[in-house]
Protein backbone atom coordinates (compact mmCIF):
# COMPACT_ATOMS: atom_id res chain seq x y z
CA UNK A 1 0.00 0.00 0.00
CA UNK A 2 2.86 2.36 0.77
CA UNK A 3 3.96 2.42 -2.87
CA UNK A 4 0.51 3.29 -4.04
CA UNK A 5 -0.46 6.92 -4.65
CA UNK A 6 -2.93 8.12 -2.07
CA UNK A 7 -6.43 8.68 -3.40
CA UNK A 8 -8.69 9.91 -0.63
CA UNK A 9 -12.43 10.30 -1.01
CA UNK A 10 -14.14 12.73 1.35
CA UNK A 11 -17.88 12.41 1.97
CA UNK A 12 -19.53 15.34 3.71
CA UNK A 13 -22.92 14.58 5.21
CA UNK A 14 -25.71 17.15 5.61
CA UNK A 15 -27.61 14.80 7.91
CA UNK A 16 -30.73 16.59 6.70
CA UNK A 17 -30.78 19.79 8.70
CA UNK A 18 -28.85 18.29 11.60
CA UNK A 19 -25.49 19.35 10.20
CA UNK A 20 -26.28 21.48 7.16
CA UNK A 21 -28.47 23.97 9.03
CA UNK A 22 -25.48 25.08 11.08
CA UNK A 23 -22.31 23.97 9.28
CA UNK A 24 -21.86 25.24 5.73
CA UNK A 25 -21.29 21.78 4.29
CA UNK A 26 -20.78 23.13 0.79
CA UNK A 27 -17.92 25.26 2.07
CA UNK A 28 -16.50 22.24 3.94
CA UNK A 29 -16.70 20.17 0.76
CA UNK A 30 -14.91 22.90 -1.25
CA UNK A 31 -12.23 23.08 1.43
CA UNK A 32 -11.80 19.30 1.48
CA UNK A 33 -11.29 19.21 -2.28
CA UNK A 34 -8.17 21.36 -1.89
CA UNK A 35 -6.55 19.11 0.71
CA UNK A 36 -3.54 16.99 -0.27
CA UNK A 37 -4.26 13.56 -1.76
CA UNK A 38 -8.00 14.14 -1.96
CA UNK A 39 -9.27 12.62 -5.20
CA UNK A 40 -12.96 13.33 -4.86
CA UNK A 41 -15.44 15.01 -2.54
CA UNK A 42 -19.13 14.10 -2.37
CA UNK A 43 -21.84 15.85 -0.40
CA UNK A 44 -24.79 13.82 0.73
CA UNK A 45 -28.07 14.53 2.43
CA UNK A 46 -27.89 11.30 4.45
CA UNK A 47 -24.62 9.45 3.99
CA UNK A 48 -25.71 6.54 6.20
CA UNK A 49 -28.81 5.83 4.11
CA UNK A 50 -28.57 3.34 1.26
CA UNK A 51 -28.17 5.96 -1.51
CA UNK A 52 -25.41 7.64 0.54
CA UNK A 53 -23.58 4.37 0.99
CA UNK A 54 -23.97 3.55 -2.68
CA UNK A 55 -22.33 6.89 -3.51
CA UNK A 56 -19.33 5.89 -1.40
CA UNK A 57 -19.06 2.51 -3.08
CA UNK A 58 -19.47 4.07 -6.52
CA UNK A 59 -16.76 6.65 -5.78
CA UNK A 60 -14.38 3.96 -4.51
CA UNK A 61 -14.73 2.14 -7.83
CA UNK A 62 -14.74 5.21 -10.07
CA UNK A 63 -11.83 7.04 -8.47
CA UNK A 64 -9.96 3.96 -7.31
CA UNK A 65 -10.06 5.40 -3.79
CA UNK A 66 -7.71 3.83 -1.27
CA UNK A 67 -8.83 5.93 1.71
CA UNK A 68 -12.25 7.21 2.71
CA UNK A 69 -13.09 10.05 5.08
CA UNK A 70 -16.69 10.51 6.16
CA UNK A 71 -17.59 13.77 7.86
CA UNK A 72 -20.88 13.08 9.59
CA UNK A 73 -21.92 11.91 13.05
CA UNK A 74 -20.04 10.24 15.90
CA UNK A 75 -18.16 7.07 14.97
CA UNK A 76 -19.84 5.48 17.96
CA UNK A 77 -23.01 5.20 15.91
CA UNK A 78 -21.97 4.62 12.32
CA UNK A 79 -18.36 3.46 12.29
CA UNK A 80 -19.53 -0.16 11.91
CA UNK A 81 -21.95 0.90 9.14
CA UNK A 82 -19.28 2.66 7.11
CA UNK A 83 -16.63 0.02 7.77
CA UNK A 84 -18.97 -2.58 6.24
CA UNK A 85 -19.83 -0.20 3.44
CA UNK A 86 -16.22 0.33 2.31
CA UNK A 87 -15.40 -3.35 2.88
CA UNK A 88 -18.17 -4.30 0.45
CA UNK A 89 -16.48 -2.08 -2.11
CA UNK A 90 -13.21 -3.92 -1.59
CA UNK A 91 -11.48 -1.45 0.73
CA UNK A 92 -9.98 -2.58 4.02
CA UNK A 93 -12.37 -1.25 6.69
CA UNK A 94 -9.49 0.28 8.66
CA UNK A 95 -8.80 2.66 5.77
CA UNK A 96 -12.02 4.55 6.58
CA UNK A 97 -11.93 7.48 8.97
CA UNK A 98 -14.76 9.59 10.36
CA UNK A 99 -14.88 13.27 11.32
CA UNK A 100 -17.56 13.99 13.88
CA UNK A 101 -19.14 17.21 12.64
CA UNK A 102 -22.53 16.58 14.26
CA UNK A 103 -22.32 15.65 17.97
CA UNK A 104 -19.03 17.54 18.37
CA UNK A 105 -19.87 20.44 16.07
CA UNK A 106 -23.25 21.36 14.59
CA UNK A 107 -25.27 20.28 17.63
CA UNK A 108 -23.11 22.14 20.15
CA UNK A 109 -22.42 25.36 18.23
CA UNK A 110 -25.92 26.04 16.95
CA UNK A 111 -25.60 29.78 17.26
CA UNK A 112 -22.15 30.09 15.69
CA UNK A 113 -22.38 29.12 12.04
CA UNK A 114 -18.97 30.55 11.22
CA UNK A 115 -17.20 28.97 14.20
CA UNK A 116 -18.89 25.63 13.56
CA UNK A 117 -17.93 25.68 9.88
CA UNK A 118 -14.30 26.54 10.69
CA UNK A 119 -14.23 23.72 13.23
CA UNK A 120 -15.77 21.25 10.77
CA UNK A 121 -13.06 22.12 8.26
CA UNK A 122 -10.34 21.48 10.85
CA UNK A 123 -11.88 18.17 11.82
CA UNK A 124 -11.99 17.14 8.16
CA UNK A 125 -8.38 18.24 7.59
CA UNK A 126 -7.28 16.28 10.68
CA UNK A 127 -9.22 13.23 9.48
CA UNK A 128 -7.71 13.45 5.99
CA UNK A 129 -4.22 13.72 7.50
CA UNK A 130 -4.89 10.71 9.67
CA UNK A 131 -6.50 8.77 6.79
CA UNK A 132 -3.38 9.28 4.69
CA UNK A 133 -1.42 7.40 7.33
CA UNK A 134 -3.92 4.65 8.08
CA UNK A 135 -2.90 1.09 7.42
CA UNK A 136 -4.97 -1.90 6.42
CA UNK A 137 -5.57 -4.22 9.37
CA UNK A 138 -6.75 -7.78 9.65
CA UNK A 139 -9.23 -8.46 12.38
CA UNK A 140 -8.64 -11.63 14.32
CA UNK A 141 -11.37 -13.98 15.37
CA UNK A 142 -11.39 -15.79 18.68
CA UNK A 143 -13.50 -18.74 19.77
CA UNK A 144 -16.35 -18.01 22.20
CA UNK A 145 -16.91 -19.96 25.39
CA UNK A 146 -20.50 -21.15 25.15
CA UNK A 147 -21.56 -20.24 28.68
CA UNK A 148 -23.02 -17.20 30.39
CA UNK A 149 -22.65 -15.76 33.85
CA UNK A 150 -25.84 -14.19 35.18
CA UNK A 151 -25.24 -12.03 38.24
CA UNK A 152 -28.30 -11.59 40.41
CA UNK A 153 -31.14 -14.05 41.01
CA UNK A 154 -34.12 -11.69 40.97
CA UNK A 155 -36.87 -11.87 38.38
CA UNK A 156 -34.64 -10.43 35.63
CA UNK A 157 -31.71 -12.71 36.37
CA UNK A 158 -33.94 -15.79 36.60
CA UNK A 159 -35.68 -14.95 33.34
CA UNK A 160 -32.42 -14.25 31.50
CA UNK A 161 -30.92 -17.49 32.84
CA UNK A 162 -33.95 -19.52 31.76
CA UNK A 163 -34.01 -18.00 28.28
CA UNK A 164 -30.32 -18.72 27.73
CA UNK A 165 -30.53 -22.23 29.16
CA UNK A 166 -33.59 -22.98 27.03
CA UNK A 167 -31.57 -21.80 24.06
CA UNK A 168 -29.02 -24.50 24.76
CA UNK A 169 -26.36 -22.47 26.58
CA UNK A 170 -24.74 -23.30 29.90
CA UNK A 171 -25.64 -20.72 32.56
CA UNK A 172 -24.13 -19.92 35.94
CA UNK A 173 -26.68 -18.01 37.99
CA UNK A 174 -24.95 -16.26 40.88
CA UNK A 175 -27.03 -15.00 43.80
CA UNK A 176 -25.66 -13.36 46.90
CA UNK A 177 -28.44 -14.54 49.22
CA UNK A 178 -29.48 -18.08 50.19
CA UNK A 179 -32.38 -18.20 47.70
CA UNK A 180 -33.17 -16.83 44.29
CA UNK A 181 -36.33 -14.75 43.89
CA UNK A 182 -35.12 -11.26 44.71
CA UNK A 183 -37.44 -8.46 45.69
CA UNK A 184 -40.26 -9.93 43.64
CA UNK A 185 -40.50 -12.94 45.96
CA UNK A 186 -41.37 -10.60 48.85
CA UNK A 187 -44.31 -9.05 46.99
CA UNK A 188 -47.82 -10.33 47.50
CA UNK A 189 -49.90 -9.75 44.39
CA UNK A 190 -48.46 -7.98 41.36
CA UNK A 191 -50.04 -5.54 38.91
CA UNK A 192 -51.72 -5.43 36.48
CA UNK A 193 -53.02 -8.97 36.72
CA UNK A 194 -53.24 -9.18 40.53
CA UNK A 195 -51.68 -12.61 40.53
CA UNK A 196 -49.19 -14.16 42.92
CA UNK A 197 -45.60 -13.02 42.52
CA UNK A 198 -43.92 -16.42 42.98
Amino acid sequence: MSDETLRIGVFVCDCGHNIAAIVDTEEVARFAAELPDVATVVRNRYTCADPGQQEIQKAIAEHRLNRVVIASCTPKIHEPTFRSCVAEAGLNPYLMEMANIREHCSWVHMKDREGATAKAKDLVRAAVGRAARLKAQDEKTFPVTDAALVIGGGVAGIQAALELADGGHQVYLVEKGPSIGGIMSALDKTFPTMDCSI
Binding site: G153, L162, H169
Partner: peptide
Protein backbone atom coordinates in the same frame (compact mmCIF):
# COMPACT_ATOMS: atom_id res chain seq x y z
CA UNK B 1 -37.97 -19.90 40.30
CA UNK B 2 -38.51 -23.64 40.42
CA UNK B 3 -37.74 -23.92 36.71
CA UNK B 4 -34.44 -22.15 37.20
CA UNK B 5 -33.62 -24.40 40.15
CA UNK B 6 -34.05 -27.63 38.24
CA UNK B 7 -32.94 -26.67 34.75
CA UNK B 8 -30.18 -29.06 33.61
CA UNK B 9 -28.18 -26.23 32.05
CA UNK B 10 -28.44 -23.76 34.94
CA UNK B 11 -25.92 -24.09 37.72
CA UNK B 12 -27.42 -22.24 40.64
CA UNK B 13 -24.76 -20.59 42.79
CA UNK B 14 -26.52 -19.11 45.81
CA UNK B 15 -24.61 -17.52 48.70
CA UNK B 16 -22.11 -16.53 46.08
CA UNK B 17 -20.44 -13.34 44.97
Amino acid sequence: MMDAGRHPRIELLVNSE
